[in-house]
């Protein structure tokens, strides 16, 4: 862990802030996974960690390595691009398959096929 002492103060502060902010955003997303009541509202929670959390922590990693090793090749961009491209696809497919399963079981609060009118918004009770 000795290399971290070489980090100058002007770089250390943004690295720390980005790390803490990114992990807190990810934690809030995961707490949302616990707290929200229906599956469809839980579908929104991981996007927090996947968009803001990944960007912040990858930025911290980029900044840290760039200052420490004087290496201005940002290969953490790859992770950002992969995650941002792939997470929506995953969530879309998951939402579609959940809707399909709910329709087969004829659950309440799930929009039917070929009905133009909307169901009233469900209210969640904690």
């Amino acid at each position: 862990m000795s290399h971290l002492t070489d980090l100058p103060l002007w770089a250390a502060i943004p690295v720390c802030l980005l790390l803490l902010a990114g992990s807190i955003v990810t934690l809030i997303g995961s707490i949302g996974l616990l707290r929200l009541k229906s599956f469809y509202s839980r579908l929104h929670a991981p996007t927090l960690g996947a968009s803001a959390g990944v960007i912040m922590i990858c930025l911290a990693s980029m900044l840290c390595f760039a200052v420490l090793q004087n290496r201005w090749i940002f290969h953490e961009v790859l992770i950002i691009v992969f995650i941002i491209l792939t997470t929506p696809v995953t969530l879309m497919l998951l939402g579609q398959s959940a809707l399909y399963r709910d329709r087969i079981e004829e659950k309440d609060g799930v929009p039917r096929k070929t009905t133009p009118d909307l169901p009233t918004p469900e209210t969640e009770t904690p």
Binding site: L19, G22, S23, L33, P46, Q69, L94
Partner: peptide, 22 residues
Amino acid sequence: LGLDALYINGMLLLLTFGIRTA
């Protein structure tokens, strides 16, 4: 959905380990 969130969080944890050990 939990598995999906779990691997993203695990990936972020690995990145912080990378910062810690360079």
